[in-house]
Nucleic acid binder design. Sequence first.
DNA 1: AAGTGGTCTAGACCACCTT
DNA 2: AGGTGGTCTAGACCACTTA
Lengths: 236, 236
Amino acid sequence: MRKPSNRQTSSTRVRDRLRSDIFSGHLAPGARVTVGGLAKRYGTSPMPIREALQELQGQGLVTGIPRRGARIRAVDAEFVANVYDLRTAIIGLLLARCVRYITNVDIEEIEAIQAECERVTRNGDVAGILQAHHRFHDRLYRIAHNAEAHSAVERTWPLLHALRSRFGFGPGRHDESNRNHRRLIEALRQRDEALAVQLGQDSSERAKQDLLAMMRGGAISAGAGSARRGAGRPRD
Amino acid sequence: MRKPSNRQTSSTRVRDRLRSDIFSGHLAPGARVTVGGLAKRYGTSPMPIREALQELQGQGLVTGIPRRGARIRAVDAEFVANVYDLRTAIIGLLLARCVRYITNVDIEEIEAIQAECERVTRNGDVAGILQAHHRFHDRLYRIAHNAEAHSAVERTWPLLHALRSRFGFGPGRHDESNRNHRRLIEALRQRDEALAVQLGQDSSERAKQDLLAMMRGGAISAGAGSARRGAGRPRD
DNA sequence: AAGTGGTCTAGACCACCTT
DNA sequence: AGGTGGTCTAGACCACTTA
């Protein structure tokens, strides 16, 4: 019963640590990183570094210069807003298609996932909330039968996951999100394409605004159930 | 006059040949490919194969199975339609932002590129047309100041480029495209956001329909007026 | 002209699937 | 248990940027 390295490959380890180092500010925005330097830093050979760098490049976290290494991208408000706007545009496409393909069985399953979302919300476990939320979106967009659009929006998830883990959620944000999900499900049940698209894009926009506010506040609040932290938020 | 050498790396060579082999049908859709097999086929070591595979996976041409190799994706009508729909959605976002950021200098430069588009159209050189067309889009979307959305739509270009090189354009398609470009430029000059978005998305939709029609016909016509066909390979 | 740093080769390792 | 095949290591190669 040896499961020492689960699905944990060296590339993924490097990728996660690299991402963590970017968010923690240990690797400054705009800093140039080299394969050799990172290989020594993480104690591995060039190949996993290249792989991780390429994946993070696909997520927009690093920008590659042809023959001159790579550069850390600043995870600032503009970058986050851009990623969310991209998500919003694609989500509009996906939801329009969902309305055309969705079945009652799909709706039942999505409602079950939504119930799960609301349950973990009461627990207040951020990791669980993120996971359930992700499952909701994944299950929904699968219906759209557009794998390219789906994976394009999926590609932005690791970034948002990491940011939410760090900055948490604003007060009442979870309830708002769940309310939006419920309304979206109702629109899907009615097969109201325009409304579903509108609600989904609104949801995405609200999520963007909430995350941006949390980033402005610099909060590290876990957003967990204990409401006794509410007073000290440096709101602006 | 020297430097025949690089910008051509082994990874890119493998990537291009792999893509070519997929389009030519030499690698059947759904076929499983292995790193070792491709390494022998292309006479190289595993690493460039992995790199090329990963990039093509990012473009949706191959789908990776965690521990079990990769699979060639079928380049059929559904796949092409999906990619175009994704493009259309993102283009809407980009054009809406373009209207907000565009300057008169931008418009002048875009008009110059459009003039180039029309000149190469008269020549009938497909490669030149594709290049000019690409420059038009690239220059335009740069204005939107959303690098993530821009690169997401750029990622779909190599696929469309390859397909157009193989299947060409329908009769009158170039003139229609240029007409749409001119109208789009006019909408941008008026800063009419709704119209610009509408025209841009219409253009994308028309391009999709044209390419799908060409694929249905199985034509290899260069689209330069000589609409001779019938000797073409129906499919491989 | 020397240095820096990305790219590639060949082989070993080991996880997963098959008999 | 054996086979298949992805993943990783260490070092060499070479293009591009410095003095």
